[in-house]
């Protein structure tokens, strides 16, 4: 889709996107149901509290996971690239433009999807689906992979900001 950028100095062209991982939501719910089944099938004499308490804990766990680990928000523009994970926006990673050596769109195969927020010594991965994905390479060689709805637009916003003359 083409969107005409406004001409003139002082222009801020920014891309924002949100991706929800329905896979995470579904797998959490399935795991929660399984946990309930295992808990109730173990038998024995259960008091009311013994049933309600685990159910409550599982419900809280499912809710917490859905709230914190099901979506990823990304912003790209003159202020760099920021990833916010989950509804509360934590963990959060921010990369100013001068810390991004290269930004590109890669085609992520499904077996490389991290299905969550991963931080390893050489990589930061925040991917919830396969397909076109933003990949940043930092000056120190660190590789950052993030799922955004329109990776081409996100990379275009970063490129435009990197080549534009800095007026501030």
């Amino acid at each position: 889709m083409t969107s005409p950028p406004l001409a003139g100095d002082g222009t801020h062209a920014v891309y924002t996107g949100r991706t929800t991982s329905w896979t995470t939501v579904a797998s959490t719910c399935v795991a929660g149901v399984l946990l309930v089944l295992v808990a109730t099938s173990s038998g024995g004499a259960w008091s009311d509290l013994m049933i309600v308490l685990p159910l409550l804990l599982i419900a809280i766990g499912v809710l917490a996971d859905v709230l914190t680990a099901s979506s990823v928000r990304a912003t790209a523009g003159p202020n760099g690239f920021t990833i916010r994970w989950g509804s509360v926006g934590w963990p959060r990673c921010s990369y100013p433009l001068d810390r991004i050596a290269r930004a590109e769109v890669i085609d992520l195969p499904w077996w490389r999807v991290s299905w969550g927020f991963w931080w390893t010594p050489r990589r930061t991965s925040c991917t919830v689906r396969s397909g076109p994905t933003v990949r940043l390479t930092l000056p120190n060689g660190r590789i950052v992979t993030v799922t955004v709805p329109e990776p081409v637009a996100a990379v275009a916003a970063l490129d435009a900001a990197a080549t534009a003359p800095r007026d501030t």
């Binding site: 002082g10 801020h12 062209a13």
Partner: peptide
């Protein structure tokens, strides 16, 4: 969603942001 605002424009920033949403 793409946003484009011009800090040097005479148009109010909030109107520019609202226009971005309308265009989207």
């Amino acid at each position: 969603m793409r946003w484009a605002i011009d800090h040097t424009s005479r148009e109010r920033l909030q109107d520019q942001i609202a226009d971005c949403v309308r265009r989207g």
